[in-house]
Design a binder for these strands. Structure first.
Lengths: 333, 333
DNA sequence: GTGAAAGCGCTAACAC
DNA sequence: GTGTTAGCGCTTTCAC
């Protein structure tokens, strides 16, 4: 043993309780003793042992923040939002990338049960029976960033999510208003919940404006720059006519810009382009991108705030919807 | 108390020692008892308490990884390298962004002393007396990703770094070989160590090829897209002639591409461009960027490996230099 | 083979 | 005011 409260007690000749009182400021300790104790503590470079506190007090002041991919620009603002709120409240954020793998999600929920952290915010592409059950059974405070319909009152988790359908409606209507007649969509994988929600918004907007919908205008681009490039290239080379294009994210939109540049297609003159996420990419492109802001910062911020409420014992279920906004720039002017 | 070893002991009627033996697999426990214990453990959904282990055993199996900016693409590969190695060895990586602030660095070293984690990998723009002393006094295993000359044998830290001077030599010589006569540099802040090292490489390469050097060709662009755009715009509008440009990172290079596009300057025909970092940006630009690969993945990987060695008690100082490589693409062809 | 008990470093309840 | 002590959940030593 070294540099513990016991050592300081031994050196100063006071009891461990007195030393603890002096160090923590809780409870009375005479000025004289306090001074001596603080001096010795400083000399020994005393540091509390965080594991001892965690064991004794039952909290770690740490929060797990799980995201599918730590290197995806989409999450940057969300990370910022989460960390700002937690830091302000004296919590440390532990980032944990799940690689979009269910097994990693399950593993991390396990960790939570081991009192590794006090709570968790989890972003996942796929909230299913398995991970939701694990969260539920962990009985630890958790916030998930998706809509989840099966929530029960005694559940330990809250959720906050952004309305993808509405985001897509905004994008589609914007292009319609700009006079586009043939609007293609480069969307994510058709099995993903998000993709379905977005396509709903696309169809709703078309219907609302009395425009016909053509399934062949829905392309699968997988959120990926290279894939977007190839998919759209094929589409155009088939001789398809388009004057509006909605792309699943800014990075994929960059792939589109690259193809159009090479193919001599002018944006926004020939095709008006809208993408999703409103990340920094949207600003550094040529032309700059019109993009649907998915409120990532607020999602992170509110997720952290809801979690803090849970930790403070208020256990009313929260479920928040955020409405996206459209940021118009050169690519659709 | 609930779901602890004590509870299982109570329910099964065995001692806590027996239960612990059954659960951990260390020491003998009869098959019959083990089965019963495991059944009860499963039923109670028993989970070890990580704080108790940390307190009792003195290790957490967690490693802190501090980086100035978690949202900077430059660190992505490094994060990947660190996490892969640590995960393979049963450690969790805790990412911590320091916002380039000394106070946050000091705070996190404090945390390390509190046995929050078993060790740390720290990336900083500025290793100075203050943070190095704090690391030294923490007496915890640490790896820093910069050269540090004052290292002493008994120090608890190792270092690994990339040779910026050589990287700049590669970039400069490449442009010289491509026939460039007027090579400008858009570098970082002149007070930073990295900037100085890189400029050394620039001067060395010019000297080696008998080319004159002109201080006015060294521009301060601060690693930033917008700033790069403005700085280079001003430079060109002053009527300066350039046929080669070296930019501090890929993101800043995108700002240059944007300006050149608007100004009708063709790359690589009018100006050949080389940037640093070889991130994914370099691939998604038009034209694609020639870029100096700073070996981020390896830096992360080796940093983690060195740290693991320290944790396993081998305490020989390591200091590793990585040599950058040049990846040639369209922007300098 | 199995159990009792000490102790990791700390907090807090309770004596005095 | 200050000290003694129990106990957080676990591992490990040492009896039996």
């Amino acid at each position: 043993m070294k540099n513990g409260i016991k050592d300081i007690a031994q050196i100063t000749g006071y009891s461990t309780a007195t030393v603890a009182r002096a160090l923590s400021g809780n409870g009375y300790c005479s000025k004289e003793k306090k001074e001596k104790i603080m001096a010795v503590a400083k000399q020994l470079d005393y540091q509390v042992n965080s594991s001892a506190i965690a064991l004794r007090c039952g909290y770690t002041r740490r929060i797990l923040f799980c995201i599918p991919d730590i290197c995806n620009i989409f999450y940057f603002k969300m990370i910022q939002g989460v960390m700002e709120v937690l830091e302000k409240n004296g919590y440390y954020t532990m980032l944990y990338p799940t690689d979009k793998k269910l097994e990693k999600e399950i593993e991390i929920i396990q960790l939570l049960k081991q009192k590794f952290c006090d709570g968790m915010i989890m972003v996942s592409f796929d909230f299913c029976q398995e991970n939701i059950s694990a969260i539920r059974e962990s009985n630890c405070p958790v916030v998930i960033t998706n809509k989840y319909d099966g929530q029960m009152e005694q559940d330990c988790f809250d959720y906050i999510f952004v309305d993808h359908t509405y985001g897509m409606e905004l994008a589609t209507e914007h292009l319609i208003e700009k006079g586009c007649k043939k609007i293609a969509v480069l969307s994510g994988s058709p099995t993903e919940q998000t993709t379905k929600e977005r396509l709903d918004g696309y169809f709703d907007a078309l219907k609302k404006h009395g425009m016909e919908m053509d399934r062949s205008y829905i392309l699968n681009g997988q959120y990926n720059n290279e894939c977007a490039y190839e998919t759209f290239k094929q589409f155009i080379e088939q001789g398809r006519k388009v004057d509006g294009l909605i792309v699943s994210n800014d990075y994929a939109a960059m792939g589109i810009l690259r193809y159009c540049h090479e193919a001599g297609i002018h944006i926004p003159e020939d095709i008006k382009l809208v993408s999703f996420d409103n990340t920094d990419y949207a600003l550094s492109c040529m032309p700059t991108l019109t993009s649907v802001d998915m409120r990532q910062y607020e999602i992170g911020k509110y997720a952290a705030e809801i979690l803090l409420e849970r930790l403070q014992g208020r256990s009313k279920n929260h479920n928040i919807v955020m409405q996206p906004t459209l940021v118009v720039r050169q690519s659709s002017k």
